[in-house]
Nucleic acid binder design. Structure first.
Length: 414
RNA sequence: CGGGGCAUAGUGUAACGGUAGCACGAGUCCUUUGGGAGGAUUUAGUCUCGGUUCAAAUCCGAGUGCCCCGACCA
């Protein structure tokens, strides 16, 4: 894409009232726009990152054999009455329709998926299976904060699994854990993200959180120095030793919860009567699990751990474009433009996503913007590089400049 | 919902109770092109309502919005 066609602009300064790093950089670079406290719009560059993250997750979910759906965002009140959460869940957005009927803006989807499955599930032979979706969730946060890390409206991947017994759930639950591990590594925050034990509810000893360690987080986690298993502060009192390796040595750090997995048991299948017939024809309750991943929160967490004092610095896997092609030296020069166009076409045809800064602005502006946008590879074409018959290549996270033969670019970037 | 802070042009910032100014941005023209370049010119603002006063961006009251701390966060 040509940057001259990109409708978003960068700014030299962030809005004064934004304090969090993720919001400051994402707004300055034109990735997102704040509508109100805890509510953000995603602009072309930001949406590209969101889509990259989603695609990485989608691939993993599909590998688990899960099937993608898109459930309704408006929920009937009755379903929430049925589970009791109409009263107990404090952050529900309750709205009224034209007939004065009360509705819920979906904050999570157990109340939708569980009764939905009832009419599609009969026999033990239908089990197990799982469904997932990417969707905007709504929660009436008492206090939105930390940029996109805690919003009243946010994008989430939620997965729901259905099993005939606990053993089968445990098996799938562990597979999801492995998938999550892989996802965090792929999007570039594997090192900073720790598996954390948290309260498990009535059906299991623990739930599992994925905590990305960053001062911007809001949870205190205690990390075993031997095996890296973390324990959430809320249950630390009951754990003198690490449940995994028995060690007593741990460090305390701040994390942001980017993922969470729960063994639900029959918590939702019971109130909705989600049952199956076993081999003997007897009716049995379905055992469920649910698995969340905050997409927009993941975006914020990636920024928190990767941005530096010059701006964003995307991991290749989630970058909105792989390369930032910059033409300057003399923008009026036909030679420079022609060469840049040639490189742009070459890379684009090779399937490499390139943002070409073809604007007629000063070199300093382009370089500063390149740092701010944070695309992994910066390619410069100027009268200088043309003289030498090369393209200057620099990675966002390195200071090295490489002069590369244009023919070798695709290999280098691919 | 408790506590604290803030609200001036698209953005960031000034202005003792007395002419709302500066920088960046944006428009036009010229020059310029390897780290936010230079000149000329134009554009655009006091969150809302009420009060005090000869006079309010400034003082007072209420409201609204935003940020931070806390409470809350299957």
């Amino acid at each position: 894409m040509r940057q001259s066609n990109l409708f978003t602009k960068t700014t030299r300064e962030a809005p004064r009232d934004e304090m969090s790093r993720n919001a400051i950089w994402l707004i300055r670079a034109g990735f997102i726009h704040k509508e109100m406290a805890g509510v953000y719009s995603y602009l072309p560059l930001g949406l590209r990152v969101i889509k990259k993250i989603e695609q990485i997750i989608r691939a993993e979910m599909n590998k688990l054999g899960s099937q993608e759906v898109l459930l309704s965002a408006l929920h009937p009140k009755e379903n929430w009455i049925r589970t009791g959460r109409w009263e107990t869940m404090t952050d529900l957005y309750k709205i009224k329709d034209e007939n004065n009927h009360e509705l819920v803006l979906g904050p999570t989807h157990e109340e939708i998926i569980t009764p939905l499955i009832v009419s599609h599930l009969n026999s033990y032979q239908d089990l197990p299976f799982s469904v997932y979706q990417f969707q905007t969730k709504f929660r009436r946060e008492l206090r939105a904060k930390s940029g996109i890390l805690r919003g009243r409206e946010f994008i989430m991947k939620d997965l729901y699994s259905f099993h005939r017994d606990k053993t089968d759930l445990d098996n799938f639950y562990n597979q999801v854990g492995a998938s999550y591990r892989k996802i965090f590594e792929t999007v570039g925050i594997g090192e900073q993200t720790v598996l954390t034990l948290a309260a498990g509810g009535t059906f299991a000893d623990y739930s599992h959180e994925s905590q990305t360690l960053t001062p911007a987080g809001e949870d205190q986690v205690h990390i075993c120095t031997k095996c890296r298993l973390a324990i959430n502060d809320e249950i630390i009192a009951k754990h003198k030793t690490c449940p995994e390796c028995g060690s007593t040595e741990r460090t305390t750090e701040t994390g942001i919860e980017v993922g969470n997995t729960f063994k639900l048991g029959t918590k939702f299948s019971a109130p909705f009567g989600l049952n199956y017939r076993d081999e003997t024809g007897k009716s049995q309750p379905v055992i469920m699990g649910c698995y969340g991943l905050g997409i927009s929160r993941l975006l914020g967490a990636i920024v928190e751990v990767t941005a530096d004092d010059r701006g964003l610095a995307w991991p290749i896997t989630v970058a909105p474009f792989r390369a930032h092609l910059i033409s300057f030296g003399d923008n009026q020069s036909e030679v420079v433009l022609a060469q840049a166009k040639q490189i742009y076409d070459l890379l684009t045809k090779a399937g490499i996503e390139v943002l070409w800064d073809d604007r007629a602005v000063a070199p300093g502006v382009k370089l500063a913007d390149a740092d701010l946008l944070g695309l992994p590879f910066r390619l410069i074409i100027s009268s200088r590089t043309i003289e030498k018959g090369v393209v200057e290549v620099k990675q966002r996270t390195s200071d090295n400049l490489d002069l590369v033969n244009p023919q070798k670019l695709c290999v280098l970037l691919g």
